[in-house]
């Protein structure tokens, strides 16, 4: 190895090395240019968005936002609010979520079996069922609610149907996936004892997928009761309807109260569902 003394290094040597390995000497002109182009593009894009959405209105809106925040925090008229109606609507909301999810489970069970490749081994069929589930899932619950409000009129039925359709897609896909990942050996064992097809499903497949299904159903009920609170905004029943009435008449104190009610209900359901999940899945896995 040839060594160089520090005093030997002159400008010429440095220039030569810079020529050879430009990246070692910090950013090259090209890097810098790319960086500026990226920054410039980002700035131009932000300017475009500013033009598109007029963010200046945020500042003029803040004053009004402050006004409604103050109104929201003033609960002096608490005793005059229609508590019975609100609590009833809250119960209705949770009931909608529960009914919708349960109906979806009933509908999704056979669909899940049909969509599982190891139960119905036709590729084309599987492709079609999967796309059907995707379609049901892909359209948002709120869109389904809007459509069902047109079809069956205002009220919780529209909400239940919206939850049911969207969830059937979710459950069918999850169930099909759970069924596809089962251990084949248990099914073979049950079949070898002379069980017919239905019995094989009952004792070979169901015990393996039940814990997964219970946990998914509970999770979905949980998230549905959160979703169900907004379905009423488009007229599909529940607390959302009351909320939208109160927003439209600018009763901000009651809006805040309804939101607090929703948050409490969601927290309670989360808690119960966590307890149930731990208990049910705990016992289910103990049973093997």
């Amino acid at each position: 190895m040839n060594s160089i003394r520090l005093s030997d290094i002159g400008p010429a040597e440095i220039a030569a090395q810079r020529q050879r390995m430009p990246a070692v000497f910090g950013m090259t002109g090209r890097d810098r240019a790319i960086r500026w182009i990226v920054f410039g593009a980002a700035a131009a894009y932000l300017a475009y968005l500013h033009w598109l959405f007029d963010f200046g209105r945020v500042f003029s809106g803040l004053e009004k936002l402050w006004v409604i925040t103050r109104l929201m925090l003033d609960w002096s008229a608490f005793s005059s609010w229609d508590h019975v109606e609100l609590i009833q609507s809250m119960v209705e909301t949770v009931a909608m979520a529960y009914l919708g999810s349960m109906l979806a489970v009933v509908l999704a069970l056979p669909l899940g079996f049909l969509g599982a490749y190891n139960i119905v081994p036709q590729r084309v069929f599987r492709f079609l069922t999967r796309r059907l589930f995707d379609g049901m899932r892909g359209i948002d619950q709120l869109i389904w609610a809007l459509v069902f409000v047109r079809a069956v009129g205002l009220g919780p039925i529209a909400g239940i149907l919206a939850i049911c359709i969207a969830d059937t897609g979710v459950f069918a896909k999850l169930f099909a996936e759970a069924i596809e990942t089962i251990d084949r050996k248990q099914l073979d064992g049950v079949t070898s004892t002379g069980a017919n097809r239905l019995q094989a499903l009952r004792f070979g497949v169901v015990p393996q997928i039940l814990p997964v299904m219970i946990s998914q159903v509970l999770y979905q009920i949980e998230s549905n009761s959160r979703e169900a609170t907004i379905l009423g905004l488009v007229g599909a029943g529940g607390i959302g309807l009351r909320l939208s009435e109160r927003i439209q008449i600018n009763a901000w104190d009651q809006v805040a109260y309804v939101i607090v009610l929703v948050l409490i209900t969601v927290a309670v359901i989360d808690f119960v569902s966590r307890l149930l999940r731990m208990r049910l899945i705990g016992t289910a896995s103990r049973r093997g």
Partner: peptide, 19 residues
């Protein structure tokens, strides 16, 4: 807080529109 509810509330101070 559900974002649709938040949007509904924000329509009042910030006006109808994407903001």
């Amino acid at each position: 807080i559900p974002q649709v509810v938040l949007a509904f509330i924000f329509v009042w101070p910030f006006g109808i529109g994407p903001l």
